[in-house]
């Protein structure tokens, strides 16, 4: 998105960052919500980077072939469900380590995405329509920052929905019980394997929608470097958000803003350390992890069975 912020002076950076946060947060939002759902059931899916790439490629391909970006979003979710189901099935086999399985799924998912995506590298697919909320402003920078993808609002709604599911519904209770203490959950008559299969599969589906945003939003192209580790950072973000869907939302906005820092500074003419500024989300994630993790492994809000066999 090209912003001419000179007219706004220092505020230009703020507007660019806020606009960037609303655009850039979408993949983080969906992947972290999907991961939150997965981890609430007591399992980790580190393979979200592969899911994100697969979602991005599928959404782009289906949108290009059918002309309907919304079909692309649905197809991406379906691809994510399949990868999620594979991860869920694998990690339920005895002696299969879920962290190692996640690494394998990153390789497998990105391999499939690059394989099928080869033919789509050049063209441009139909993009999702944008909601124009900045019509009232005469400043082009503000107006363009307020052209928002509908997926942004879908993501916000989802985070509140998930919060409601976790705290107010029978399903949510079953998922939390499974994640906190599978033995006790079994004693209550909960089918732990089925609950986990459902949570991990659905989590993959959610995450893949974030991938759809990567290719169905400006500039609307598919390339192999498109996800740039966002799937992985979103996994770290769930720890930062202490396994709460609503805090995932806030953290996603923060990360989206950090991602916009490099391009925003560049648009202000500051491009001396372009590559280093662009790396700020990675640095931020690392800093946040160092600040919030603890070696004795008892973090508030952490599902009890997480990381245990």
């Amino acid at each position: 998105m090209q912003l001419p912020p000179e007219s706004l002076g220092g505020w230009g950076l703020v507007v660019a960052l806020c606009g960037g946060a609303m655009r850039g947060s979408i993949p983080y939002m969906f992947v972290s919500l999907g991961e939150c759902l997965t981890e609430k059931s007591g399992k980790i899916n580190l393979g979200m980077e592969g899911v994100l790439l697969m979602g991005a490629m599928t959404a782009f391909g289906v949108s290009d072939l059918t002309g309907s970006p919304w079909l692309g979003v649905l197809a991406a979710a379906a691809a994510g469900l399949l990868l999620g189901a594979l991860h869920a099935w694998m990690t339920q086999q005895p002696a299969v380590n879920d962290v190692a399985a996640g690494i394998a799924m990153i390789l497998f998912g990105s391999g499939l995405a690059f394989f099928f995506g080869k033919r789509f590298v050049a063209p441009m697919a139909p993009q999702l329509p944008l909601l124009n909320l900045g019509g009232w402003s005469h400043t082009p920078a503000v107006a363009s920052a307020l052209r928002i993808s509908p997926l942004f609002f879908v993501g916000i709604a989802l985070s509140f929905l998930l919060h409601w599911v976790f705290t107010r519904t029978r399903w949510g209770l079953q998922i939390r019980a499974t994640g906190d203490d599978p033995q006790a959950a079994r004693a209550l008559g909960i089918d732990v394997n089925r609950v986990r299969f459902f949570a991990i599969t659905a989590g993959g589906g959610l995450a893949a929608i974030g991938g759809a945003h990567l290719t169905l939003y400006f500039p609307g192209i598919w390339s192999e470097g498109i996800s740039g580790g966002q799937g992985l950072m979103a996994v770290a973000l769930v720890i930062f958000a202490r396994w709460s869907p609503r805090r995932c939302l806030a953290a996603a906005l923060l990360f989206g803003g950090a991602q916009a820092l490099g391009p925003s500074l560049q648009s202000l003419g500051i491009n001396g350390y372009y590559h280093l500024f662009n790396a700020s989300p990675y640095l931020l994630t690392l800093a946040v992890m160092i600040a919030t993790c603890s070696p004795n492994r008892s973090l508030t809000g952490m599902p009890g069975a997480l990381g245990k066999k």
């Binding site: 580190l46 962290v99 996640g102 690494i103 740039g228 580790g229 992985l232 950072m233 996994v235 770290a236 350390y273 372009y274 590559h275 280093l276 662009n278 790396a279 990675y282 640095l283 994630t285 690392l286 992890m289 160092i290 993790c293 603890s294 070696p295 004795n296 492994r297």
Partner: peptide, 26 residues
Amino acid sequence: LQHYRGVSAVISGLLLNYLAIALMNQ
């Protein structure tokens, strides 16, 4: 970081990959 701070080496390792590439390009 994993041993003393409990930060998963899988996550920090992948983040450090991206940082190394940024450092290289710079």
